[in-house]
């Protein structure tokens, strides 16, 4: 509640959908997915939308990209009631990228993950955005308004202004500006997004736990466009939302209801609605291996 006493125990029991998580390819990836689900159990995270992107802007081969996505599919199969997949592609491989998205969707993935090989508004990315809009699936874009040395290292990282620009061209696309706490000037990006399409969301993941960021996101975009996520900062990000000066309803929207709305556009239900009671918060998950 606004200005009420923070109740951590109750907050941990709230079901949560983490729209930004990662798994690795290969056997190590499967073990990592077990750890991810085990920690999610402790935090009340009932489902995780996972991807295995090529980070740092590197132009990997289509074969390597497929291997990474296969790692996500393997994690989905290992934890079918906890992990959903986001298909990573590098849009410049036009033919291969479209085919890879179709392959991953056929395997049960529910969205697309893009990193910083291209700015989101680069015309090379448009066919991917168009496909996502047609299929009503979300596109999670690695974002930050970087400054200084970090910007020089990753100049094609999209920020809030880039996201607002692409949302003007594709207002029906479900776009997620990743990790407002993922580094970079989050106030800059949130201000840049204030007039963007209502189909553009932000996720709250990232290791920056700066106080006030969730409240600012809600003030700029409205609570219906703010999504819970961790990007591996699991306890920190749960704590950000629990600690934010927001109403209980707004926190519910962030923790799960907004992501459930995104799933509903594909005719899917969130796992917390179908999960047996007692499968989170320290109990073994239904599909734990």
């Amino acid at each position: 509640m606004v200005d009420g006493r923070i109740d951590v125990k109750a907050g941990l029991l709230e079901p949560k959908i983490d729209v930004h998580a990662h798994v690795l390819p290969g056997e190590e990836g499967l073990r990592q997915s077990d750890r991810l689900v085990a920690v999610a159990d402790k935090l009340g995270i009932t489902e995780l939308w996972c991807s295995a992107p090529i980070a740092g802007g590197r132009m990997a081969s289509p074969e390597e990209i497929r291997r990474n996505n296969d790692g996500v599919i393997a994690a989905m199969r290992r934890h079918p009631r906890r992990i959903r997949g986001l298909c990573f592609v590098i849009p410049g491989y036009y033919t291969e990228a479209i085919a890879e998205v179709e392959r991953c969707l056929a395997a049960g993935m529910i969205g697309i993950k893009l990193y910083n090989q291209y700015k989101i508004h680069d015309p090379a990315v448009w066919p991917i955005i168009k496909l996502a809009a047609e299929r009503r699936i979300p596109v999670l874009e690695h974002c930050a308004h970087l400054t200084g040395k970090t910007l020089a290292e990753q100049p094609l990282t999209s920020d809030g202004a880039d996201m607002a620009r692409i949302s003007e061209r594709f207002p029906d696309a479900i776009l997620i500006n990743a990790h407002i706490g993922g580094g970079g000037d989050l106030e800059w990006s949130l201000r840049a997004l204030r007039d963007a399409s209502p189909n553009l969301y932000v996720d709250v993941s990232g290791s920056n736990l700066e106080d006030g960021q969730i409240e600012m996101a809600v003030a700029e975009l409205g609570a219906s466009r703010v999504l819970f996520a961790t990007d591996s900062t699991m306890e920190g990000c749960v704590g950000k939302v629990i600690g934010a000066r927001l109403s209980r309803k707004e926190k519910e929207m962030i923790f799960r209801l907004n992501a459930a709305d995104i799933l509903a556009k594909q005719g899917l239900q969130p796992f917390y609605q179908t999960q047996a009671a007692g499968t989170i918060n320290g109990e073994a998950s239904a599909d734990a291996v």
């Binding site: 951590v8 306890e235 704590g239 629990i242 600690g243």
Partner: peptide
């Protein structure tokens, strides 16, 4: 907690677990 720079809720979640 690194208050008020950071959310104290994050440190509390870690402490709880």
């Amino acid at each position: 907690t690194h208050s008020p720079h950071s959310y104290a809720g994050s440190a509390l979640v870690k402490l709880e677990l």
